[in-house]
Amino acid sequence: MPDPTLPAPATPTGAAPAGALPIGAVPTGADAGRRTTPPGQRLPVLDVEGLGVRLGGRQVLSDVSFHLCQGEVAGLIGSNGAGKTTLLRAVLGLTPVSAGHVSVAGSRGRRPPVGYVPQKVVLDPDLPIRARDLVQLGQDGHRWGLPWPSAAKRAATEELLAGVGALHLADARVGQLSGGELQRVLVAHALAGGPRLLLLDEPLANLDLRSARDTVALLDCIARQQGIAVLMSTHDVNPLMGVMDRVVYLAGGRAATGPTADVVRSDVLSSLYGHHVDVLHAHGRVIVSIGDDAHRDDGCDAVPASAGVLADEPEPSRSGWR
């Protein structure tokens, strides 16, 4: 696709005119768009209250509370083993909750209106399923009976694929897509169910810098134009810095949550980690320095975050942070 601009996502819900905003310069454009709606008027979509999860006798999460409104993008930040996937699975209802509760707006019955993109989907290259089949399964994959072809379904599928800039991949086998391409198709699949909330588990892992930037821009665009709340986990805060309204920062099973500027601060993260943490801003990037050796065993992911070597973000408008 042509470099800096992404194809403007179509809007099946008709929430906003498609392509109304230039998307190329992501952070500023996004922030400008977001500022038009005061936070108070947004409807809450996800409410997590005092969430605790025990797995195999170990307390993986305790007392995690946050909420997410429609159209907001939230980053779920933490090193490997911090409980990011567990939190996402608890929101999906796939992991039993031992304390607190999770509620998704408009959820009735067994299937909450949540779209999910798992971290790693390994597919056989021979799988006789095309991208359009996978997106269609997002609409009706849970239904019984044989699918009947219909022009309406076909149009909806193509609109969803176009919305993520993957229409040209419609007839390719899903197993033969590259990581970034599969990511887009999976996002289209997740959107096919008409979700109010979109969960993504490490969507930026295994993507090169450009694909990662494109993915973030795409998700921001989806949130803004379709009013869908997006919660994505990542171990590096930087790629999300310009677009993220809220942060859920996990460490040691506990969480610091709130608007980005209120959480990614030295004092807040220091109290989360229980020892001194430096948060430095340099050249539009955030460097979270977790200097204690005791936490080095959290995994090597602490190192890129603290070294800040991953992201090469355009300068975000600092004043735009809440």
Partner: peptide, 13 residues
């Protein structure tokens, strides 16, 4: 089935 050191989900520590 004791508490295991590595839970099944969310940790690779």
């Amino acid at each position: 089935h004791r508490p295991r050191t590595a839970p099944a989900v969310g940790s690779s520590r």
